[in-house]
């Protein structure tokens, strides 16, 4: 009953407005930056003309850069970032563990194997995406089945089964790398595993966008119930929640959006772990705020990292490397700051 416990209540509405404004600025600037410079006013005019059918005041190269090249890539980066951050937040709540990331159940390893297999079979980009998606879903499905067949705590056995199945898929990917053609297949597999949005086109965006939206909607609607399950299974049951059903639905949706994301981007680490922590620092632990915050912040964050990947060097830097470069130090800082607080 001391004074320090009556703490200042943050203005979450203002914080959300600032976050949305920052995200919109990121989107706008992402159209302007790149090899081919486009001024901000041109970016705005191109969209104004597309919408309001104004007179054309720029050259075709500008239009093509903004609409054909940057728009799909920006959408892809935003969808993938939003998906990974939301899935990370959802998994962390469902497993009552803030150190869980979206690939905990093997989604990334499964996607990696699927993509490597498609490349090994000399299939086209559409098949690589399809195989990666199928690989992720199969891997998580296998982990779920294994966990149901073991005894003991549901969350622990799921995490252990995830580790088990994902190491199996990683081993299969390594095997494919050793037998793959070293001239073109091996580099392609290696690059895919490092993650990149360079190849993302409009068909990828539509494929992933539809699946990611479909998976995020149930998570968004169930977000308050997710709070209750973070207290643990027995407490959740005593308040009238069916923990198995909620966990199954949320994990299935989180897996769907992770699989859709990695299937077009390759493996991008750290976002699913770091962004939910950032959201908690700014918006508290309530999932009613964490889920919308993770969608916006995850999308904007990956967009900025992808801008850096595009502009940093003459050749593109794989985005998975950059997220680790940026994510690991941020996470170290968060851990130290969190340690001081408690």
């Amino acid at each position: 009953m001391t004074e320090q416990k009556t703490r200042h209540v943050p203005n979450y509405k203002l914080r959300f407005i600032l976050l949305i404004a920052a995200a919109l600025l990121c989107v706008l600037f992402s159209f302007a930056v790149g090899r081919f410079p486009v001024s901000l006013s041109d970016v705005i005019m191109v969209f104004a003309t597309e919408i309001f059918k104004l007179d054309i005041t720029w050259d075709f190269a500008t239009w093509s850069t903004v609409i054909n090249i940057r728009l799909p890539r920006i959408l892809a980066a935003f969808f993938v970032g939003a998906a990974l951050a939301t899935a990370g937040a959802a998994y962390q709540g469902m497993f009552q563990n803030p150190l869980v990331s979206p690939d905990i159940l093997g989604a990334s390893s499964g996607a990696g194997f699927g993509a490597a297999l498609a490349i090994f079979m000399n299939l086209g980009p559409v098949w690589i995406t399809a195989f990666a998606f199928a690989g992720a879903v199969i891997c998580v499905g296998a982990a779920y089945v294994v966990s149901r067949l073991t005894k003991g705590s549901a969350t622990l056995s799921m995490v252990l089964a995830g580790i088990l199945v994902s190491s199996l898929f990683t081993a299969m990917t390594s095997f494919l790398k050793t037998v793959a053609d070293t001239e073109d297949q091996l580099p392609e597999i290696t690059y895919w595993l490092m993650g990149s949005l360079a190849g993302a086109d409009m068909s990828d965006v539509i494929f992933a966008g539809v699946l990611i939206t479909a998976g995020i909607i149930p998570i968004f609607l169930l977000r308050w119930r997710m709070n209750v399950l973070t207290l643990g299974e027995d407490e959740a049951k005593s308040m009238g929640l069916n923990p198995h059903r909620l966990r199954l639905v949320v994990v299935a949706c989180a897996t769907l959006i992770t699989a859709a994301a990695v299937s077009i981007s390759g493996i991008i680490g750290w976002i699913g772990l770091v962004i939910p922590h950032f959201c908690r620092m700014i918006f508290g632990c309530d999932y009613r705020r964490i889920i919308p915050a993770a969608i916006i912040m995850g999308g904007a964050f990956l967009l900025v990292v992808d801008d850096i990947a595009r502009c940093m060097a003459t050749t593109e830097v794989p985005i998975g490397i950059l997220t680790a470069f940026v994510g690991a130090p941020i996470f170290a800082y968060l851990l130290m700051a969190g340690g001081k607080r408690s």
């Binding site: 709070n227 407490e235 049951k237 005593s238 009238g240 069916n242 508290g284 309530d286 408690s342």
Partner: peptide, 22 residues
């Protein structure tokens, strides 16, 4: 669980929570 929860509430031993809710 829902039907039981409407008639019985459970007050567990207070443990330190994983997430610091308000």
């Amino acid at each position: 669980h829902k039907q039981i929860a409407k008639r019985i509430a459970y007050i567990p031993q207070s443990t330190h929570p994983v997430f610091n809710f308000e």
